Computed example of a mutant assay.
Amino acid sequence: MKKWLLLAWLLGLTSVTGAWAQAGRKINWGDSRKAIIGYEGIKPSFITTTEIIYDSVLVHNYKFKLSYTFKDNKLRSVCYYGMAPLGDSLKIKTTFLALLNEVTIDYGDPTVSTEDSDHIKKLTFTANQTRVSIFFGLIAQAYYSLNVQYAH
């Protein structure tokens, strides 16, 4: 049986590619908070000088919470957070596999691959000043968690 991953981190190029581009987000590292809000076209759920959060965005027809973080009003990272109960795991697993495929196409094979005793796997990809780490797994035998982070 395939083992699944728990969290995904992507650390960045000058523009965001792969799963992000699939989500329709045409942004660049260093973009301002105002620019990001304009690109999203919807009102954020939460906003401060260092973070913007949207409660529900679609990536591969799966709803994620989306968080943008800023330093000196310049985009530094983006994180997608998704969770699903055991009974609804097929959709999140399918989303994970699609995102993993895109990251592998965009960044090549992982440079680091680890798996812990709970079968939570972490893959890290490094290319062109970008680091991509993907985690996906079953948490407390109750739900699956899929998180993807892009950072510069």
Results as ranks from 00 to 15, higher is better:
H152R: 04
T50N: 14
Y68L: 11
L123S: 08
D118R: 01
L11N: 14
Y143R: 03
I120L: 10
Y81M: 04
L146H: 01
D72P: 04
K74L: 06
S15Y: 05
V132A: 10
G30P: 09
L146F: 00
Y107C: 04
L10T: 03
K26F: 06
A140L: 12
T69I: 12
F135N: 03
F46C: 12
I27K: 10
Y143N: 02
T130G: 02
G108D: 05
Q149M: 02
I139K: 09
S56D: 09
T104Y: 01
I120F: 06
T95Y: 00
G24N: 07
N61S: 15
I139S: 06
A142H: 04
G38P: 13
I36S: 09
F96N: 00
S133E: 14
A151I: 04
D72E: 14
P85W: 00
G82D: 00
V78G: 09
T94I: 02
V132P: 13
Y68M: 07
V148G: 05
K26E: 14
S56L: 08
K26V: 08
G82K: 03
V132Q: 09
H60T: 08
Y80H: 11
T124W: 05
K122L: 08
G137W: 00
G137N: 07
I134G: 01
S145G: 01
Y107P: 09
D116M: 06
T94V: 02
T126P: 06
Y80L: 13
Q141M: 10
D88Q: 08
W29I: 15
D109P: 05
L86P: 10
W29P: 09
S15P: 15
V57A: 09
K26N: 14
Q149C: 07
R25M: 14
F136H: 01
M83R: 02
I47L: 04
H152I: 10
Y150A: 08
I120K: 08
D31P: 03
G18N: 12
W29C: 07
Y39Q: 10
I47H: 05
K3N: 15
I27M: 13
V59N: 15
S117Q: 11
K71R: 12
Q149S: 02
F135C: 02
I42E: 14
I42V: 15
F125P: 06
L99V: 12
I37Y: 01
L5R: 01
F96M: 03
M1H: 12
D88N: 10
I105D: 11
W4C: 03
H119P: 14
Q22D: 15
L86E: 11
F135D: 05
A21N: 13
V78K: 10
S32H: 04
A35S: 14
F70V: 07
V103N: 06
E102Q: 12
D88M: 10
S32G: 11
D118W: 00
L6I: 09
S89L: 01
F46I: 07
T50H: 10
A23F: 08
T94G: 05
Y81F: 11
G137C: 02
S113L: 04
E51M: 11
A98I: 07
T95I: 00
K65I: 12
L138S: 06
N147Q: 05
W20E: 13
L6C: 10
T49P: 14
T48S: 14
G18P: 14
S89I: 01
A84F: 00
K121H: 01
G87S: 04
L10M: 05
H60D: 15
T114N: 15
D55M: 05
Y54M: 13
